[in-house]
Every structure is written in structure tokens, then in C-alpha cells.
Design a binder for these strands. Structure first.
Lengths: 240, 240
DNA sequence: TAAAATAAGTGGTATAGACAACTAGATAAT
DNA sequence: ATTATCTAGTTGTCTATACCACTTATTTTA
């Protein structure tokens, strides 16, 4: 597997070898792979070189590190279609998963100039800031921060926020969401995001910012989401 | 900037410090930062520790490494709206940039079972495989591989492929594209992709697979793209 | 003058070792 | 029986060093 005289870097050879073992099923998802020291002894290479190979595979989403325990083969990605404009809960149910929510923060803040402009309100007016971890089948799928003008949803409490805000707005308040703008961007997880999503810092994530609008054209909310790229793909159908 | 007795890792302190210098503008986009050896001497730490800090910032898209030259502050991202179903060329022009193309490969291959199914043709039937680097203002923006059944576009030559395939199909062949399905996913650049896109291996990229359909519902093409996350955001407007 | 060789500086790869932080199970003390 | 401690194994951080590959400018050579 490793040829020290190859022009290819050793870490790269090991990286490709491990990847192949995963893709061929010789290493199963969830299974613990040999420890860094074992790889190093096995091929008589330095542990730092092993770490470089494993680092890359962790960044690629093939492996997951767990300090004090070991390194494990990651579980597979999810891919299901998503039609039209849906809430996270609708999205997850359409994918055959059970949506869940962990509330991280729920409070009001004064609107920044940027948010005021995007939400069509005055600068400094109160908006709800709702930070939540969105779960799918109990596992973290995304980190979501929503900003909603307080004046639009007077009855919002921590209770309502445990489920779908969209459903609350449509069912309880009688407001209808008409359209949204979404910006998608690939990035890597920062430290805090990684901890909350239970992924490694530097793992790929899909950043989505959604601006939603009511039938009147009035902006309803801004939602910034950080999705785990190892569990989430975004699918859309478009007409010309 | 660095406190060796802090509980925070040294590489993390340096990483945050450099990031702050970038965000405060003390390091300007495109500017070369001190070399790894200089950081190491400056704070009396190991070069490997400096590398770990810089690695993270490269992964986060703050810095760009250039072997033999130095490490540079990355330039800012592009963000422009994209409405409806557009070609790469249309997309780039809408963003105020000049689209370009470098043809990497143009040949026919027999359809794999998966491609045959997605394109609605028989397994083993010929399809064009067109690999191109898509440029914006002369700089690599995406790596694109398109698969089109040969039977649908008989006149396709290397000449036509230098520009927009969409425009060729609509203008020359009189076919109309009606809809498409797109799957977006965050990932990191592999070695070959990184070289072609002139980014670092492991840099974040946005993977997009587009399946296009004609008015008849007949599948027209499959396009797999790898976009540089540091230069490209995907924007979409949706109606409910 | 032009081409080739050299040197200095950069990031890229690799080594061998050390200690810290964390996990889980075994063992000892209460 | 329960609790506390120890221990072995894991990944995380860090050091000091070495050589390689590439870039650029300078110097030497033809």
C-alpha cells in the first residue's frame, strides 16, 4: 500500500488507500479504523504523516475523529429531492426523517443597519434572534439563526419556537409566505459551529441564507443556516 | 499576540490573530503575509505550529498558499443574484463578468448504466463527454463535465463547445430547454480539481449536478460542476 | 548579448519524540 | 455495593530538524 520511493507523497498514498478501503466496504461506516500509531508502525512511517492523511479524509468527510476513543468511518450522506419552498421540518419529513430542534437562544436585539434594510424596518427596531440546532432523527443537521421583526409576530414564545416557525406563522397568525431568496455557499465549519454540529472544525458545510417574504411583499425573516455537508444535499427543480 | 501559557492552543491563538489582522484590514487582500519561518521566529514557536494555524485559515478561505512564492490574503467573494435557469455564460454576464472556456476534453464514451438511466437512453449508447474549465474574467471559476447523448446533438464539434452549449442547442438546433434539476453540495477540492481551478487542495468547493430536460420531457444533458467557493455563491429565488 | 548555473527564499513533505487531554475499563479503597 | 484511583489506549498539541520542490533574482558562463 505504501511505497516510500514513489514520487507520490506518503500521506497521499495512505490517504488514497484508506479511502479505497472505505469505498470498497472493507471499512464499514461507524467502524473504528486502526489508531494513528498502528498505521505508523504498520508502514514504518511517522505518526505526523499518518495524521496528515487522516486529516484530509476527515476534511473530505470520510472519517470522523473522536479524541480519546479513535477514528471512525463516517456515515453516508443523505440525498432526497426538495420541491419548492419548504421549512426545515417539511424538508426533513420529505426525506423520511424526524425533525427536531434544540433551542440555543431566544431573545430580542435591535436591528443592525443591514438587517433593518433587508427586513424593511427601522434601524434599531426590535427583532427576535432565534438560534437553534436543527436535528434529523435526533442527530444535528444544521445550525440555524433566524431574525424576525417583533412587530410581525407578537405571540412568539419559546414554546412556539420548539417546532416550525413557518407552521406557526401560517397556522396561528394567518400570514402566508409567498417567496424567498436563498444564497448557497460552500464553506468549512468554524470551531463553535463544529462543536454544535458535532463535526470536526474545518469540515465542509453548506451555508444558506434565506430571506422570506409575505404575500404583501413585506420581508418576514432572515435565516442563516449552516448545514453539515456530510449529511445534507440541497436539491432544487427549476423551470426556464 | 501569543501566550505560551494560555490554555488555548498556540496554533489557535495565531490563527485568530492573523484572522483579526485580515478582518481589520491590517492585511489587505492579495497582500503577502510573513513567511512561515518568520512567524516561527517572531513568536519563538515551531514552524509546524505556524503551519497548523495557516492551514486552518487556508481551509477557511482567508489565505492562499503559493509554493515557492508565499502565502497571500485571499480576495473577496462574488455575490450576485441568479434568476431562473441560466447557462454558465448567462450567469457570469449577469454578474458583470466575462465568461470564458478552456476545453480539456471532448470525446464520446458509452453510457454507463447510471447515465443511461438518467438520460433516458440505452446502456452503452454513445454520449459526448465534454470537460471544460469555465472562466470568469479570465480566472478559473468552475470545472465542468457535461454528458449529452450524441443522438440529440449531431452537429456538435469542438468549435461549438468553446462557448455556451445551451446557446448552441437553442439557436442552432431549435431545441428548447424547459426544466432542470440541480443538486448542490459542499465539499473540498481534490488534488486534480485544485490544480485546474488554481486553488489549494482541500479548499471548499460547491458541487452542482444539473440534469436538464427538453420541452418534451426528454433528458438533454447531465452537467457536473465544481465551483470555487471563494469566488462563487449560488443564489436562487423561490415561490411557494 | 544571451543562455546557463547559482543562490536565497518560499511552501511541501517527513521524521522522532514528548507531553497533554480525554475515554473506558480494571483495580483498589471505602 | 459504591466510589475513587489507576492504567492503557486514543487523539490533540508542540518541538526541532531535515530535505525536497518551486520561484525569483543574481551571477557566471558561453
Amino acid at each position: 500500500m505504501i511505497n516510500k520511493h514513489s514520487p507520490l507523497p506518503i500521506y497521499y498514498q495512505l490517504e488514497q488507500g484508506i479511502k479505497e478501503m472505505i469505498e470498497k466496504g472493507q471499512l464499514q461506516p461507524g467502524e473504528m479504523i486502526p489508531s494513528e500509531r498502528e498505521w505508523a508502525e504498520m508502514y514504518e512511517i511517522s505518526r505526523m504523516t499518518v495524521r496528515q492523511a487522516i486529516n484530509n479524509l476527515v476534511n473530505d468527510g470520510y472519517l470522523v475523529r473522536k479524541r480519546g476513543k479513535g477514528t471512525f468511518v463516517a456515515t453516508k450522506k443523505i440525498e432526497q429531492p426538495l420541491k419548492g419552498l419548504t421549512s426545515f421540518s417539511e424538508d426533513m419529513r420529505a426525506r423520511g426523517m424526524v425533525p427536531g430542534t434544540t433551542l440555543l437562544a431566544f431573545h430580542t436585539i435591535p436591528a443592525s443597519p443591514s438587517f433593518a434594510s433587508q427586513l424593511g424596518i427601522g434601524e434599531g427596531e426590535d427583532v427576535y434572534e432565534i438560534r437553534r440546532i436543527r436535528l434529523a432523527d435526533g442527530l444535528p443537521m444544521a445550525l440555524e439563526t433566524a431574525y424576525v421583526p417583533c412587530s410581525l409576530v407578537p405571540g412568539l414564545t419559546e414554546q412556539n419556537v420548539s417546532g416550525s416557525i413557518y407552521e406557526f406563522i401560517e397556522n396561528k397568525l394567518g400570514l402566508t409566505i409567498r417567496s424567498a431568496t436563498q444564497v448557497l455557499e460552500a464553506s468549512v465549519a468554524r470551531k463553535l459551529e463544529a462543536e454544535l454540529l458535532q463535526i470536526k472544525e474545518g469540515a465542509p458545510v453548506l451555508l444558506i441564507q434565506r430571506n422570506s417574504y409575505l404575500q404583501t411583499g413585506q420581508p418576514l425573516e432572515i435565516v442563516k443556516s449552516v448545514y453539515r455537508a456530510d449529511r445534507y444535499k440541497f436539491m432544487i427543480e427549476m423551470e426556464r
